[in-house]
Amino acid sequence: MVRMSAEERRESVIRAAMSEFARGGYYGTSTEAIAKRVGVSQPYLFRLFPGKKAIFLAAAERCLQDARRVFMEASEGLHGEEALHAMANAYTQLIAEQPEKLQMQLQTYVAVAAAEAAGDLEFGEMVRKCWMELFDAVHVPLGGDVGETTTFMAYGMLVNALVGMGFPPEHRIWEGFYISARAKTGQGEA
């Protein structure tokens, strides 16, 4: 049997934490559940991370970094409309194939709101930093157009909310996306 290094074990904790926090949120997830999923003891878990908050922050940061990486890879070498469509398609694929990434993202926003209401600004600072990196990853391929970037991010958050609420792809709520896409490509009704 091959032993994992501390860094490999830390990585497995982050992946497990993303799954557990995606399901239960910050307050509804125990470190015991994360340790069990990884196959380590809680004391070992706390040798890798100083506490539950540090585990959550690492998982939230990874979640947002993964989304940023998806945008960057999808838009590589592309600009404008081509980049926009490539990033939108890549993100749609990400949340369809790995729904826990979207669930973790939504849990992150809830945790920030709850923490800041209680006076803890650390969650928000990290998430805002990652959000700006995400914004910039979209902004550059869209030619530095603030309006296009804002619209893309706004549509993305709407997609997050609708998927998070469980609207199936065939529901009429999605019609506006299809109409908007047809209008942008000139395939609207005559």
Rank of each mutant, 00 (worst) to 15 (best):
M1D: 00
R3Y: 09
M4Q: 06
A6T: 10
E8G: 06
R9P: 02
R10S: 03
S12I: 02
V13E: 13
V13C: 12
V13Y: 07
I14P: 08
R15Q: 13
M18S: 06
E20H: 04
E20C: 10
A22R: 13
R23M: 13
G25Y: 11
Y26R: 14
G28V: 02
T29I: 07
S30I: 10
S30H: 12
T31Q: 07
T31K: 09
T31I: 14
E32I: 12
A33P: 04
A35M: 11
A35I: 08
K36I: 04
G39H: 01
V40I: 12
V40C: 07
V40H: 08
Y44R: 12
L45T: 04
F46H: 01
R47V: 14
L48D: 10
L48I: 08
L48K: 05
L48R: 09
F49D: 03
G51M: 05
K52W: 05
F56G: 05
F56C: 05
L57Y: 05
C63T: 15
L64G: 07
Q65I: 05
D66A: 08
D66E: 12
A67K: 15
A67L: 10
R68S: 11
V70H: 15
F71G: 08
E73S: 10
A74F: 04
S75L: 14
E76V: 05
L78T: 06
G80V: 02
E82R: 14
L84C: 03
H85P: 01
H85E: 12
Y91H: 11
L94W: 00
I95H: 04
A96D: 15
A96V: 08
P99A: 08
K101M: 05
L102M: 09
M104N: 09
T108C: 14
Y109W: 14
V110P: 04
A111G: 13
A114C: 04
A115V: 02
E116R: 09
A118M: 06
A118R: 12
A118I: 00
G119C: 12
D120V: 01
E122T: 14
G124L: 10
E125N: 01
M126R: 13
M126T: 08
W131H: 01
E133A: 02
L134H: 09
L134V: 00
V138E: 05
P141V: 10
P141H: 11
L142I: 01
G143W: 12
D145M: 10
V146M: 00
V146A: 08
V146H: 02
E148S: 13
E148W: 07
M153E: 06
Y155A: 13
Y155P: 06
M157I: 00
L158N: 04
L158C: 03
V163K: 11
G164N: 07
P168A: 03
E170Y: 15
H171A: 04
H171Y: 06
R172W: 06
I173M: 00
E175H: 06
F177H: 06
Y178H: 13
Y178R: 12
I179N: 09
I179L: 06
S180E: 04
A181C: 03
A181P: 03
A183R: 14
K184Y: 04
K184A: 10
E189N: 00
A190N: 13
A190F: 15
A190C: 06
